[in-house]
Amino acid sequence: MSRSLFALAAALHLSVAAIPAPAFAWGTTAHTAINRAAIASIPDDGPVFLKDHIDFIGGLASLPDIWRSSSEPFSKIEEDPNHGWFSEQFTFMKTKPRSRYEFVIALLNQQRTVADPASDDALRTNIRWTGTMPYAIVEAYGRLVAGMRWHRRLADEGKDTRFIDQALAYDVVRIGHYIGDGAQPLHASIHSDGWRGDNPKGYTTDRTIHSRFESQFVDMIGLTEQQVTANVAPVARQGGDLFDTVLAFLDDSAENMEGVYQLDKQAAFAASDSKAARDLVYARTGAGASMLRDLVTRAWAESVNPPVRPATDPLDPKNPSYNPETGSAPAK
């Protein structure tokens, strides 16, 4: 890794450590271990040049969280929803829109049907309380593919790839953070920071469950890159629709949400020797690292092909799927 990259990683790592951790985020320990395990497990036919930047990608794993401070309100408003996907909040959608802006409009239309605009239901039918994580992931994936095509072109021409490689390392930091968050079950549910609504099993409503699980317990057990790597799945040569793959990943994470509350009820996160709690951390961080490795590898494989442009530009009003409210057609 270049000295400039190493210095930036070190400086920003110190900055992150000095800022109070925002809500809704794996702590630095887990995010770093996930990113490093993902990059270390890239197969030989993948973008192995990223391994030269593993310290940068691991050291800046929590970078997107510092964009969420209320001291930078424009950044916070845009960034906060990218870290969650609270699917119970939008069960009215039979199919998730293949456009961030179509999703926003669908939420607004639904909010306007709520009888009491001051009700909790109305106040939570917006992107702040639903999240936009899958859009953040697929948008970041597109940037990876485009950047990897540039890397390939420069390499084929015998030119220096150093700068595009640095840009790609940054893009991996960004997508890696969202994927890492998505692997944490409390990022995929309205019960992200305390149980909401009917609570027949008496789960905690204490907001601190989020940090007690993902930061305090993770730090207590001293999670390492090697422990995450041991739980990384074999390389999945992914095919099929990317957006559907991301949604399935988040659905799988959500299925583990109640398990977090069950363990909390047993005070498992207060004891570093809780095997069940440890196993959950290992499984979920392993799932995050596997997904990141697979998407980075998939992007590299996709980048070997020239861009395939749709028959009709998505911004063209003549596109059959064009939506004048968004000024574009959804992605295919």
Rank of each mutant, 00 (worst) to 15 (best):
H177R: 05
Y178K: 09
Y178T: 06
G180D: 04
D181M: 00
G182S: 06
G182E: 04
A183I: 07
Q184A: 15
L186T: 11
L186K: 08
H187L: 00
H187G: 11
I190A: 15
I190Y: 07
H191F: 03
H191L: 01
W195S: 01
G197E: 14
G197S: 11
N199G: 02
N199R: 06
P200N: 02
K201I: 13
K201N: 14
Y203D: 10
Y203N: 06
T204D: 04
D206L: 03
R207D: 11
T208H: 12
S211K: 15
R212L: 12
F213E: 08
F213Y: 14
E214I: 11
S215T: 15
F217N: 05
F217D: 03
F217T: 05
D219Y: 02
M220G: 11
I221Q: 04
I221K: 03
G222Y: 03
T224Y: 04
E225W: 03
E225M: 13
Q226V: 13
V228M: 05
T229G: 13
T229Q: 15
N231M: 07
N231A: 15
V232Q: 07
V232T: 13
A233Q: 14
P234A: 11
A236C: 10
A236N: 15
A236L: 10
R237G: 05
G239Q: 13
D241R: 12
F243Q: 06
F243E: 04
D244M: 02
D244R: 04
D244G: 09
T245W: 10
T245V: 02
T245S: 15
V246S: 03
A248L: 07
F249W: 08
L250T: 02
L250G: 08
L250D: 00
D252A: 09
S253Y: 01
A254H: 05
E255G: 09
M257D: 07
M257Y: 00
E258D: 02
G259H: 06
V260R: 00
V260D: 03
Q262K: 09
Q262I: 14
L263D: 03
L263H: 04
Q266E: 15
A267K: 10
A268V: 08
A268H: 04
A270D: 15
A270L: 14
A270M: 14
D273N: 11
S274A: 03
A276Y: 01
A276D: 12
A277W: 11
A277M: 06
R278T: 01
R278D: 07
D279R: 01
D279G: 05
L280W: 11
V281E: 03
Y282K: 01
Y282D: 04
Y282L: 13
Y282Q: 04
R284S: 04
G286T: 06
A287T: 10
G288I: 02
A289Q: 08
S290N: 09
M291I: 01
D294K: 02
D294C: 08
V296M: 10
T297H: 08
R298K: 06
A299N: 08
W300L: 01
W300A: 02
A301L: 13
E302M: 09
V304A: 15
